[in-house]
Nucleic acid binder design. Structure first.
Lengths: 195, 195
DNA sequence: ACCTGAACACCGTTCAAGT
DNA sequence: ACCTGAACACCGTTCAAGT
């Protein structure tokens, strides 16, 4: 896959890539808090100061990871949109949303981390907006009622389900299929208004 | 309120309380990541090692904060339950849930932090279970359909709404009332199943 | 019983200096 | 242009020692 020209060794010109690849691995293994810049440099085999030639700060490195997270997310949501009939698009995309979160828990958490939003760099905002535009487009095609409310409701349901499953707050029953659970929750028509 | 016997000064016996109070302030001001044990000791006016006479580790201190968070949450949910008619209980409690999150953003995040769940101490589990039991009781009283699905749906909706508002992903429109938004999302009866 | 001082093994970040 | 070595100002945690 990789086209490293000379040997199997890293960093004759692509230290940036090497850092990002190793960082993504460390992120999924230990979470953003456990991702140390010095440890990362050690893993890649470079001095502690070297990463600063490629990233302004730790937060900038994390932002780069989050952006590729949003890109993967966008691609998967786009495929889900194309590969499903209009009537079941929202259900299919909801499935994709939750499955992405469960497959990449720490990357998903990083994408929604308030620490990243805090010093909002434009790159992150753009990647996030692009990702959520897919959702907006689909919910805008809903037939009846207040579309903004329906869209927020769909997003909240799916995001809440993802987060609660991620944190282990919702336990799956033995042999229970995640897909079936998501579908059931999305399809349920219970309204919780007064009377 | 406090019955400090001699002067207004801290730590003639209640360093633990002083640490917890200062830590809660630092938590809401800067988030769990910005809460340093050494800084905390400095603020309270004590040596860096002193907190270790009262808490095994930083994570133990955070756990204590999260537990009082769950207790406040339980109390508010209990009041919401008592003070509302059965038919509007779920709506009122949903309001309370989201308002609690918005009023105590960093405490709410800490309560659901995976770092805390990781080394699960019994105290945290108990406090969390007690808090969510209020929710379970109310959704169990629902009339029709699959109650577990309806309960998960209600929880996911409300939790998702809280988290997305907290992270600034959902923007309120000018002059828009949060209560009205929550009510609208909860009451909406759109189902997202295929056809 | 409760707290301090000093130490250990770490951080993120900067900066002169090397090639 | 890209990387290193050494330093600065921090961490969380431990432990002997003080009162």
């Amino acid at each position: 896959m990789s086209t490293s020209p000379i040997s199997g060794r890293y960093h004759h010109g692509d230290l940036r890539r090497a850092l990002l690849d190793a960082a993504m691995e460390m992120l999924e293994a230990e979470g953003a808090a456990g991702l140390g810049l010095r440890e990362l440099a050690r893993v890649v085999g470079v001095s502690a100061a070297a990463p600063y030639r490629h990233f302004d700060s730790k937060i900038a490195l994390l932002e780069a990871l989050a952006i590729t997270g949003y890109q993967r997310f966008s691609r998967m949501m786009g495929e889900a949109e194309r590969d499903s009939a209009p009537e079941q698009r929202i259900a299919t995309m909801g499935q994709t949303y939750v499955r992405f979160a469960l497959a990449n828990p720490n990357l998903f958490r990083l994408m929604f981390s308030p620490d990243l939003k805090r010093d909002n760099r434009p790159g992150l905002r753009m990647a996030a907006d692009a990702a959520f535009d897919t959702l907006r487009a689909v919910t805008a095609a809903l037939p009846e009622g207040d579309k903004r409310i329906a869209a927020l409701k769909a997003w909240a349901q799916v995001h809440g389900l993802a987060v609660l499953l991620l944190d282990g707050q919702i336990a799956l029953r033995p042999n229970e299929d995640i897909g079936a659970l998501i579908a059931a929750v999305l399809a349920d028509k219970t309204g919780f208004d007064a009377a």
